[in-house]
Write a protein that binds this DNA or RNA. Structure first.
Lengths: 211, 211, 211, 211
DNA sequence: ACGTAAGCGAGACGGTACGTCGCGTCTTACC
DNA sequence: GGTAAGACGCGACGTACCGTCTCGCTTACGT
């Protein structure tokens, strides 16, 4: 790793700028935040900002990169088993939500009503990839897939990430009302059973190949 | 209703401005569009813009209001039955997607990667309400709810709107590859069966009250 | 003349800016004056400055153009006679200094110690041309030139404009201690007699072709 | 003289900076030259510049001081005689122009169209003093002054320095077309005879005490 | 010759001004 | 009354240059 760690002052300056961005975005929404706001909040000269970042978006992206490095590191380990329990969350599902909690302030801001759609897309993409891999694995092992899909597979995948994001949002907006383990478990249930059944709605279904 | 229909010129100007907004947002994303861009595209004087709208966001909101009036009108009629078919989409699910197709350009732009998070939230809120009502109805009629919920109900509800939005996105981004009827059906399946089962993944589940 | 006169507001704004430039240049020298200074002094928004002029230098040049238009207009009329009086200034010499007095503030600032060398050059060039023309005239009429030149002609010409500029500077810096008529007369004497003789110094000269 | 000679490195650095200033001023004019330009040209760190000089102007002034020390040294010796020859330049007039030639690059740059008006003023002041002294001398010796002055004396003096500067400019801009002896001689002729007579123009003059 | 104080390179930083873009308001004139 | 044309105030942008500071390296000078 030839990239040497930046000087102390530099790291300090960058941290101040990042913190200012998050705080101000919380207060008045990402788009309303100006570079001037950020530098005033961070007590850093405006020109210094431009010595480190191209613009506000660049600051966001670079900060996000670090957070995503952590996310990837935590959720990378392959699944030990493909079996699904409805009583206990899968380890990396749990790891995912623990990561979310750790960077809660960031995610709350970015997924909130004044958030940045780019962040959501990036998360979505990451989750899509995780499940895509998992699906591949399942296909190779011929485990689990016994019937024909009832919806286009990519549609199903993207609905999974939609559910996960929805869980994240609920968890964040309600200020982590339950443990990571539990929200991970809810997520699993919603994905496996579907919202209806998870709600406990039992309905007479017709058609659909006899589920 | 004392509100008389505006003058011809006025309607023409507003239409030009709206069309310009949509076209420019498609081209370079909502945030990159300026009022000057809009008025140049619409071949209207910039001052004229401000005679009709407060700002770019106001133009968007007013245009969106009209679209939502249509959406509400179409999806309002209460459900005739609570039974769910996996072979045929529910009438108002279908109506919803027909509406989406009609205003496809608008939704594609607003839910796309350079979209506006506010629009998504507004759609989400509408769908949430639809299903909230439906759940109430189900509870009153004591139909369907036979078991206790395995996830907090509002969580389940919001996961439903997340799925619906995800479906919309897929349908729009892939340029309506299937009929409204079909995408509505897929949506139903994903909600009722859950993404896993809809994919055809059959797994050994443990725990969870014996689903 | 198709160029219509600018709007009242525009003329007013430009006048304020010009006045501010002159005043501030007087106070702290041209190079120390910033656009911000000018606009604050003129009580005009900084952006408005750039709507009229490219930069500080452009403002100076355009203002100078108008002054030079006046100068050219006043000193253009050809000389009635080539005879030289040491008791009465030539009409356009006098007109020149009357013009200088009229725009005294401008010239004082621009030729002063914090002045702008470009302005001096422009004046110098104008005077050079005036005398160049006069010399041509004299040559054509074969009046006056009876002996061979004792210095290169262009050198002599440029020494004339140097003297004129020197007179201007003295007159301006001492706040017009004499009338235009008189300073014009002094100038004539210095050019015709040379500084030494004009001072009253009578010396034994040797050589030089018997002047 | 307690001032010990600076270290080798120091002298080297200062020379590089001075050379860079002159070269860059030649290329794009004094005002357009930045400290960064100078240090890059001199291949010296920008901070090092500020260890030696306050700013660009300080560098210019200190360099100019050395040149003026030389000028003063060469032109100081008092005049042996007050007699004026039109065939041979006075010794210190000649010394003056030899000095100018030696520092030609500097003077060319500083008196050129992108020059620095301060330099001109400083030269002007020096010449004024030289001639002021000379005039005093002449007055005391009662030599030469036989008539009363036809122009205010300080006006005449400043016209002399104007002529000298004009000569310098011509000599420099035309790249020393004649020897120092000759340009000094021209200068003398212009001062003694005046531009008109030096040109060879013989005119009927009226008034003025019969010169 | 050699140890040390100086000169120097590298680069982060605060600060002022620049010239530009976009916003929203206003006025004048046309139809 | 709706519109065009355009001046204007205002706030932010991203850049250039200024002058200061700190941290280490190196180099020429004095003993």
């Amino acid at each position: 790793m030839p990239k040497t760690k930046p000087e102390l002052r530099v790291r300090r300056t960058r941290k101040y700028l990042w913190d200012a961005l998050i705080r101000l975005t919380t207060e008045k929404g990402y788009h309303a935040v100006t570079v001037k706001d950020i530098t005033e909040q961070a007590m850093v000269n405006r020109v210094t900002f431009y010595r480190h970042y191209e613009d506000k978006h660049d600051l966001l992206m670079r900060g996000m990169d670090e957070i995503f490095d952590d996310l990837v590191a935590r959720t990378k380990p392959p699944l030990s088993s493909l079996g699904v329990s409805l009583d206990r969350a899968a380890p990396n599902a749990r790891a995912f939500f623990e990561h979310v909690r750790e960077y809660g302030e960031f995610y709350r801001v970015m997924l909130g009503k004044n958030g940045v759609s780019g962040v959501e897309n990036r998360i979505r993409k990451h989750i899509d990839e995780l499940f895509q891999e998992r699906l591949e694995l399942a296909r190779q092992q011929e485990t689990g897939i016994v019937k024909e899909a009832m919806v286009p597979p990519d549609l199903a995948i993207s609905s999974i990430s939609a559910i996960v994001l929805s869980m994240m949002r609920w968890w964040l907006e309600n200020n982590f009302p339950v443990e990571a383990e539990e929200i991970a478990l809810y997520t699993t249930r919603l994905i496996v059973l579907g919202p209806y059944r998870a709600l406990g709605v039992e309905m007479e279904t017709t058609g659909g190949g006899g589920v």
